[in-house]
Amino acid sequence: MIQKNVVLTALAPAVWGTTYVVTTELLPPGHPLFAGLARALPAGLIALAMTRALPRGAWWGKAAALGVLNIGLFFPLLFIAAERLPGGVAATLAAAQPMIVAVLAVVVLKERPSVRRFGWGAVGVVGVGLVVLGPDAGFDVIGVIAGLAGAVGMALGVVLTKRWGRPPGVGPLAFAGWQLTAGGLFLVPVTLTFEGLPPAVDVPALLGYLWLGGVGGLLAYVVWFRGIGILPVTSAALLGLLSPLVAALLGAVLLGQLLGPVQLLGFAFALAAIVAAQLPARTPVLERVSA
């Protein structure tokens, strides 16, 4: 039976799946990095103001590293991939993250290699590819490198979040605030360098930024980092496949982007991988007999 913690954690990538439609329909074009900055920094500062908890000792460096990996570095690489590659290719590269997490879990967390995890990770990548890849899919070297680097960076951030945990007495809100603030501060010079000053903001854009920062930023990352601390790291990572699935579903419902039989088959593959990853592994028959 799927736990309530799984359902709660799944809300985060599901919310992140709304980013595409919010960005394309509400935000001013040509400022994706500012959108990432608006999602991260205000939310992080609000969390710090609410909790009044700052890192101590070694956690200054750990929080900064996690914030850069999970947020600050991930956003620019994601946007570079999205600009240089068709959306389906970029989404498929991002969907490889659970497999990267499975590898890093062996190296960093010293977990035993699991054919089951790699297998369902591969099924998930295939599923997302069927949903989002189209006949116009092309491969730009820089875009592919950026997409893979973004997936590796966030995968490392997820694994390190699992390894380091949270300091005693620090709740998910404060922990998310540290990382959102660190990632947002990292994005400030990056955004100014590549996009210049912020764009003019009208009412629809303001609503979009409030959604990205409040729900897609503060609430989603609090839920996400809490879930990483509770769930097996590979199981949590596979929940990230919900983002491209929700984006495709919203594209079909709100933007009239039709989903054909191939896309529906991909949905089935990806959902099967997500659900299977949340189920407990079966104990081998010989182990049960010997026990």
Rank of each mutant, 00 (worst) to 15 (best):
G240P: 05
Y221V: 10
G184T: 09
P198M: 05
G147I: 01
P189K: 03
T191L: 05
L173A: 14
G153R: 08
Y209K: 09
G169T: 00
A149P: 01
P168T: 09
G165I: 00
P204M: 10
L185E: 07
A220Y: 12
V158M: 15
G138C: 04
G213H: 09
G134Q: 12
A200D: 11
P204F: 02
V131T: 01
G240L: 09
L192I: 07
G153C: 13
A237V: 06
I228L: 15
Y209M: 15
G177L: 06
M154K: 04
F139L: 15
G216I: 05
I230D: 13
T193E: 02
L148H: 07
G150I: 04
G177D: 06
P189A: 01
P172L: 00
G240N: 13
G213K: 12
P189I: 01
L180W: 01
F186D: 06
A176C: 00
G143Y: 09
M154Y: 12
V201F: 12
P204I: 05
V170W: 04
I142F: 14
P198Q: 02
A146C: 02
V159N: 04
V131D: 01
L238T: 13
L231Q: 14
G129M: 03
G171W: 06
G169P: 00
G134W: 03
I145G: 04
G138H: 13
L231V: 13
P167C: 03
V170M: 15
G213I: 08
V190F: 09
L148C: 08
V152R: 07
A236R: 06
G134S: 11
L192A: 11
G134T: 12
G227P: 08
L130Y: 05
R166V: 04
A151F: 05
V203Y: 14
D202M: 12
G169N: 00
P198D: 03
V132N: 13
R166Y: 01
R163L: 13
G129Y: 04
V188I: 14
G184L: 05
